[in-house]
Design a protein around this nucleic acid. Structure first.
Length: 587
DNA sequence: GCCGTTTTCGGCCCGACTGTTTTCAGTCG
């Protein structure tokens, strides 16, 4: 039993309790399960390991885990289920996981719909809504009914599409395992995964080998595989235990490059490339590039294919048939100096446990430096109007500045190992943009900070004009260096607030305000086309993790992928600079 | 259900928005 499975069960319990139990005091029981889930989610060791080593007593040492929950964890480790959970599911047979993508739709609403209409699934909900049965219930309006239908449609659109970050670690692990296997010459995950798309429909894995049948047998027997859908001499189709479909393709080594090109896509890019080949009297398919006489002239590597078509290598993230072939045809001698995965030197959006993060400032710094090789981070805790996150007021912010100055002194005296000399913690804040676009902290305090980021955390439903003006006003504020969360979207879950990005970019040009590429794979506030628009207009960007825990620094690759998809060059990204140059570059 | 020199009970992060509840419950962060 993995920690993330435990987390899922606990969240489900907390949801079900809210429907099954009447006692008004259950809200605290609900919160206890949610807190426990949050704690377990951020645990670096597995619950199973802790239990096997130190038993119940070991579990009870974990914060927010007491008597009752530790006993349930014991049951879970021993029997893979919790009888309390099973009882709840029996009492309330609602398919909770189906509703996890529905925002604005919580357990209280679900309770009423279950009790009045017996709704337990999305399909039943959709039926009831389209038949107008929901608006007949007291407290539900036609508007609410329409909103439910709209939300279902949004959640349907994403059916079978996975967030890149949700599958990334598992797929990389499978790729590594296959690459290490003898008989496998090369293995590469291709398709939208390789293009670093925000969401992934299925996974395509490419392998070159001289022993195709043996490699295919090895692949379909991997522990991650749940079901073999099909298996032949050169292909296999499986479903993994997490539900995602994987196609495995086996090609001879001399065709690996052409197959990688062919299966990385996208489709339109490939069509353009094949047309280009035809115009040069060639023929291109997944087995190679052929001349008029049918002789293979390229295919071993992708570089070979592109070179033979008189193009420089086009990075996978750009292969969307969105002008890249034309660009690279014309700019052959002027390479696009894209931001690379190892280029970032710092992270300008991180949280500590002083607000809603989970680790101390020094722990965040230590991990950033030792595990991720960064040279600086900005601690951007929330400010006072974000009450739930314990937002800082002016005095607390001043205290934090002092604390960080002391920590920087300690760091410079060498208490950290010397892998990255001169690590620096920058003083900062994620300042809240209020209704009218003003900030919740006065400028005389903000001006004492190294960097100021501003973001919208409330009033999401204002009109486009109002919302855009809030962001513009914040950008025009001389104290604000960066606009965090420029769109506020949650991929597949929430559209984000209505905002005219073009206008925001115009103001960012004038005011030299930096826009954030938020690397959290659920967010990626700026879409690739927004990034491209910013880059075209010479607006600077920053790639931040928004880390609430040190493991979240790993999200930076998704921000870099997004930046590359938006054609961002090294010079467009401010946190590829060393800290002194960075601070000089800000307004 | 967790927590604790206010210990074995009585608290528990909370402000703002939304909708249709004319005074507040549900949801979000």
């Amino acid at each position: 039993m993995k920690n993330n499975q435990i987390v899922k069960i606990f969240r489900e319990i907390s949801y079900l309790i809210q429907i099954a139990e009447e006692d008004p005091n259950t809200i605290y029981k609900v919160r206890a399960y949610e807190r426990a889930a949050d704690v377990i989610e951020n645990l670096s060791t597995s619950i199973e390991e802790i239990y096997l080593k130190d038993g119940i007593q070991g579990l009870k040492k974990i914060p927010s885990i007491g008597n009752a929950i530790s006993i349930k964890l014991e049951e879970l480790v021993r029997s893979n289920k919790i009888s309390y959970h099973e009882e709840l599911k029996q009492k309330v047979p609602i398919k909770i996981s189906e509703f996890s993508n529905m925002t604005g739709f919580g357990p209280k609403t679900m309770k009423i719909l279950f009790e009045r209409l017996g709704i337990t699934s999305i399909a039943e909900l959709e039926n009831a809504a389209s038949e107008g049965r929901i608006s007949k219930i007291k407290g539900f309006s036609k508007t609410k009914e329409e909103k439910i239908i709209k939300t279902i449609q949004l959640s349907k659109k994403i059916k079978n599409r996975y967030l890149l970050g949700d599958v990334y670690p598992l797929i990389k692990k499978i790729e590594n395992t296959l690459n290490e296997k003898e008989n496998v010459i090369r293995c590469l995950v291709v398709g939208s995964f390789r293009r670093m798309k925000e969401t992934i429909g299925d996974i395509d894995i490419l392998i070159s080998t001289d022993e195709p049948e043996e490699v295919i047998q090895f692949f379909v027997s991997m522990p991650e595989v749940r079901e073999i859908k099909g298996k032949g001499k050169a292909k296999a189709f499986v479903e993994l235990k997490n539900g995602i479909a994987v196609d495995l393709l086996v090609v001879p080594e001399e065709s690996f490059g052409s197959a990688a090109q062919y299966f990385t896509g996208n489709k339109e890019h490939n069509i353009s490339l094949r047309n280009l080949a035809i115009s040069m009297d060639f023929h291109l398919n997944e087995w190679g590039l052929y001349n008029k006489k049918g002789r293979r002239i390229a295919g071993f590597t992708e570089q070979e294919i592109y070179e033979s078509l008189q193009l420089p290598y086009i990075p996978p993230e750009l292969r969307e048939n969105d002008g890249e072939i034309k660009y690279f045809t014309q700019m052959r001698n002027e390479p696009l100096d894209l931001i690379e995965y190892g280029d970032l030197k710092g992270d300008l959006h991180t949280h500590s446990n002083i607000t809603d993060g989970t680790m101390s400032i020094s722990d965040m710094a230590l991990h950033a430096r030792k595990k991720f090789g960064l040279e600086y981070i900005a601690i951007t805790d929330h400010t006072k109007s974000l009450g739930l996150a314990n937002g800082l007021n002016e005095n607390q912010l001043l205290n934090q500045i002092n604390k960080i100055e002391q920590l920087n002194d300690t760091l410079s005296q060498g208490s950290f190992s010397d892998t990255v000399p001169d690590f620096r913690i920058l003083t900062s804040a994620e300042v809240n943009i209020l209704k009218d676009g003003s900030l919740d902290i006065s400028s005389n305090i903000l001006d004492k900070l190294d960097i100021v980021g501003a973001s919208i955390h409330s009033n999401f439903s204002y009109s486009k004009d109002v919302q855009t003006n809030r962001l513009i006003k914040a950008a025009r504020n001389p104290s604000v260096d960066i606009l965090f969360h420029p769109t506020g979207r949650l991929i597949n879950k929430r559209e984000g607030y209505a905002v005219d990005i073009e206008k925001v970019i115009e103001v960012a040009i004038d005011t030299r305000t930096v826009l954030e590429i938020n690397s959290n794979y659920n967010r990626l506030d700026l879409r690739d086309e927004h990034i491209r628009m910013a880059v075209k207009n010479d607006v600077k960007l920053v790639i931040n993790s928004d880390a609430h825990h040190p493991v979240h620094f790993a999200y930076l690759i998704f921000g870099i992928g997004q930046a590359r998809r938006g054609w961002a060059k090294k010079i467009d990204i401010v946190n590829r600079l060393k800290v002194d140059s960075l601070l000089k570059s800000l307004k």
